[in-house]
């Protein structure tokens, strides 16, 4: 049956190309790590900072570019400094948390624009950080994503009990003697690292979608945090694969296709979830 073999051929075809393989591995890894970290982001109401850190990292990326340094390292330094500054300012200056975020990240982003405006000509490398360029990811990028993402996952597994406790009930966690402030800073640092490895695959503007959307989709469907992380990771990977197919055959931006796939999966879960969905959830449960 030629029809079916044609179909399988078109399913297989994109992955015969090395740049597609690299892109898939990179964005799948990013999807997994983002969903695990993103579970804490949405449960703690940190979506705004999840959007702020990638923007702030642009200041570091641009500075590293101007100085001829490693772009990831520059972005990571800027993101971690921003995360710690936000935590510090909201603790000490009596400014609300989201106000501190608004002040700091826009400042760092503006610094990036300032630096870029001094460079001669448009820099393709830099713009792949802004809008994402999954298909330009090299093997060294894949390794970096794997190592940093692996470290983030190991840290979360090691401190899972503590992170769960401070996310759920910080005052009780403090009363039990846990170092709440240190753990909160640690979570911010992990979030900063996650946003940096997501930068080149989906771009500054869309990183927050990888953090928030798959985890939120999972939250609608399952009742415990470990399952929310696991299902969120799976949804992240499914979005990555589907988005890359759409990009390959539709000749559209891969990062946009990946994010829109995740958005579509969320809407499907929102409407059709067995217990809390808008449509099926209305049917009385036995």
């Amino acid at each position: 049956m030629p029809g079916i073999s044609d179909f399988f051929e078109s399913v297989r075809e994109p992955w015969t190309l090395e740049f597609m393989q690299r892109g898939l591995i990179a964005v799948a890894l990013v999807g997994i790590v983002s969903a695990v970290v993103g579970s804490f982001v949405i449960l703690k109401g940190m979506a705004f900072i999840g959007d702020a850190l990638p923007h702030a990292s642009f200041g570091g990326v641009a500075a590293a570019f101007a100085l001829g340094g490693n772009l990831y390292l520059g972005g990571a330094i800027a993101a971690v400094i921003t995360a710690l500054l936000i935590g510090f300012i909201s603790r000490r200056a009596g400014v609300k948390y989201d106000t501190a975020i608004g002040i700091i990240f826009v400042g760092a982003f503006a610094l990036g624009i300032l630096i870029v405006s001094r460079q001669s000509g448009y820099q393709v490398d830099l713009f792949s950080f802004v809008f994402g360029n999954v298909l330009a990811v090299g093997w060294d990028d894949v390794w970096l994503i794997a190592v940093v993402g692996g470290l983030v996952l190991v840290a979360i597994a090691a401190f899972y009990k503590e992170l769960l406790f401070i996310a759920y009930d910080p005052s009780m966690a403090a009363a039990s003697g846990l170092p709440v402030a240190a753990l909160q800073y640690g979570l911010l640092a992990l979030l900063a690292l996650t946003t940096v490895i997501a930068l080149q695959t989906v771009g500054i503007v869309l990183v927050v979608a990888m953090l928030v959307t798959p985890a939120a989709t999972a939250q609608v469907l399952v009742r415990r945090l470990p399952w929310m992380m696991a299902l969120g990771a799976l949804i992240g990977v499914v979005s990555a694969v589907t988005g890359l197919y759409i990009a390959y055959y539709g000749d559209v931006s891969a990062s946009a296709a990946i994010v829109l796939t995740a958005t579509g999966l969320f809407l499907a879960a929102f409407l059709l979830a067995p217990q809390r969905g808008l449509i099926i959830g209305r049917v009385p449960q036995p």
């Binding site: 449960l43 769960l164 759920y168 009780m172 966690a173 039990s176 415990r224 945090l225 929310m228």
Partner: peptide, 12 residues
């Protein structure tokens, strides 16, 4: 609204 069960909370 946190995704934890009663026994998760008590274990804390």
């Amino acid at each position: 609204s946190f995704p934890v069960t009663a026994s998760d909370v008590v274990l804390m």
